[in-house]
């Protein structure tokens, strides 16, 4: 489904190139639950950004399905981005001015989903994450774990095929983290491709594949 070939990413400094990623070769199949691990600065987030089409300044080729991202037009790329990817962040990044309901609704609005359909999708998600009673609260009124659940609900509302999560449990205590990971596992079971970057080894156990990064290179790649 996703294929990275010889991906290099560097910053040009005055005397030398500092490589953030070097020679990344990676193939991800549909339905995999992939965990990226490694110390700070190893390139996890950078790789995730490239995978999620948030960063286009790199060298090498990126195939999504049959298509080379590089040869896509801006419009194509953005529609791919819109239809195939969902994003989850360490800091949740909910819109503070919107309620739980409205936050989940946002991607649906941009996808021009009809009003009745929106209602049923959101109702289903709220139900699934046990947040029906909280739908009119603002993010600041929720605990971290609940905010992250909203973040996940928002990410999957548009039914993306790939879910990208950057340290999704970084700001949570272990009980909450566990809950989030169980949600991921369930999504994985339903067939969603999940790529997460994390520090915590225990999180990797929920996944199907673990990649260790060090200094911009893939150190190890193992099935779990």
């Amino acid at each position: 489904m996703i294929q990275l070939k010889e991906i290099d990413k560097y910053i040009e400094s005055r005397f030398q190139r500092i490589f953030l990623l070097k020679g990344i070769h990676l193939e991800i199949k549909e339905g995999e639950f992939l965990t990226l691990m490694g110390p700070s600065g190893a390139g996890k987030s950078t790789l995730l950004n490239i995978l999620g089409l948030l960063d286009e300044e790199y060298e090498g080729d990126y195939f999504f399905g049959e298509k080379n991202i590089r040869s896509m037009k801006e419009r194509e790329r953005s529609s791919l981005h819109k239809s195939e990817f969902g994003y989850i962040f360490q800091a949740y990044h909910l819109i503070d001015e919107l309620t739980v309901y409205e936050n989940i609704e946002t991607p649906l609005l941009y996808r021009k989903v009809s009003s009745s359909e929106r209602k049923s999708i959101i109702a289903e998600l709220l139900d699934r994450f046990n947040m029906v009673a909280k739908k009119d609260l603002f993010p600041a009124q929720l605990s971290g774990g609940q905010q992250q659940l909203v973040g996940i609900a928002r990410a999957i509302a548009g039914r993306p095929r790939v879910l990208l999560a950057d340290e999704p449990t970084g700001n949570l205590h272990s009980a909450q983290a566990k809950e989030i990971m169980e949600v991921f596992q369930e999504l994985h079971r339903e067939g969603t491709t999940i790529i997460q970057a994390t520090h915590a080894r225990e999180n990797a156990d929920y996944g199907s594949r673990l990649i260790n990064l060090l200094d911009g290179k893939i150190e190890s790649d193992e099935k779990i």
């Binding site: 948030l54 990044h93 909910l94 819109i95 001015e97 946002t106 991607p107 941009y110 928002r154």
Partner: peptide, 16 residues
């Protein structure tokens, strides 16, 4: 800027 970022990730085009 955070809001802009989220909205873009949620699929908002610039014109939106």
């Amino acid at each position: 800027s955070k809001e802009v970022g989220i909205r873009k990730l949620s699929g908002a085009g610039r014109e939106m």
